[in-house]
Amino acid sequence: MPKLQQKPVPLGSLHKGAKAEIVGLDETGIKTTLRKGELERRLIEMGLVEGTEVEILHEGFPKRDPIAVRAGTSTVALRRAEADAILVHKLSEPQR
């Protein structure tokens, strides 16, 4: 699949059906109860690590939050607020 753009965007900004590749994790600026560095480590432990292809499978209600993301063979649910710590290159836009 051709990459549509090269500028990384936060995963939390994508819509249902979008596919992307994780290019970086950056938890600075994310409001969280966790100590520094913890969110990043948890994301990696859940398989949300650089190089992984992800797809937004489902969106919650209301405000399309949280989201269910396919990452490899597993599906992970997370809130958009924390998904913003995951930087991705979009691979394909959702078909509308």
Binding site: K31, T32, T33, L34, L39, R42, L43, M46, P66, A68, S74, T75, V76, A77, L78, R79, E82
Partner: peptide, 11 residues
Amino acid sequence: KGAREPLLMEL
């Protein structure tokens, strides 16, 4: 008070 802990849960 405080933000909620992240969801991060496998389906």
